[in-house]
């Protein structure tokens, strides 16, 4: 009987880890998408100074949160978002608006994909 309790504890642990992961990745993805959309607004207004400040801030926040996200996600995906942010920052400083929006669309797609791939939907399961 002791083993069945251990089995139940293992199953609950696995579900808890999975729930924490899904919740954390979803919340982080939503947060960073909204922050990037905020940067987009300043870029549309040609306010490069403010956009650059915000982008650096987002980059710093992302670098801090990678320590947690790396526990759950394949590290290559996390690195790919970091690279997008670095390139976005470079394009803001160069004033390359088209290139910036191309990267911005890319990172939002990447974050949405990270979020959606964690959800237990039929298509993800299959």
């Amino acid at each position: 009987m002791r083993r069945i309790y251990i089995g139940i504890i293992f199953l609950l642990t696995a579900f808890s880890i999975a729930a924490v992961e899904t919740g954390l990745i979803s919340a982080k993805a939503d947060y960073y998408i909204s922050r990037i959309e905020n940067i987009d607004k300043y870029m549309r207004k040609d306010d490069f100074q403010k956009a650059s400040e915000l982008c650096k801030e987002v980059e710093g926040l992302w670098d801090d949160s990678t320590k947690t996200i790396d526990i759950f996600l394949i590290h290559d995906y996390v690195d790919s978002v970091s690279l997008y942010l670095t390139r976005m920052n470079a394009y803001i400083e160069n004033g390359s608006i088209d290139m910036y929006f191309s990267e911005s669309a890319g990172i939002k797609k990447e974050l949405t994909s990270l979020k959606e791939s964690e959800l237990p939907t039929i298509d993800n399961i299959l």
């Binding site: 069945i4 251990i6 089995g7 696995a14 880890i17 759950f72 996600l73 394949i74 590290h75």
Partner: peptide, 24 residues
């Protein structure tokens, strides 16, 4: 090493609990 360690732990936890449940 790019794969999180937890991605190995969680399926093993589930498999062990399934095995224990099946044996009971």
């Amino acid at each position: 090493t790019s794969q999180p360690l937890i991605s190995g732990f969680v399926p093993v936890l589930v498999l062990v609990s399934m095995e224990i449940t099946a044996s009971v």
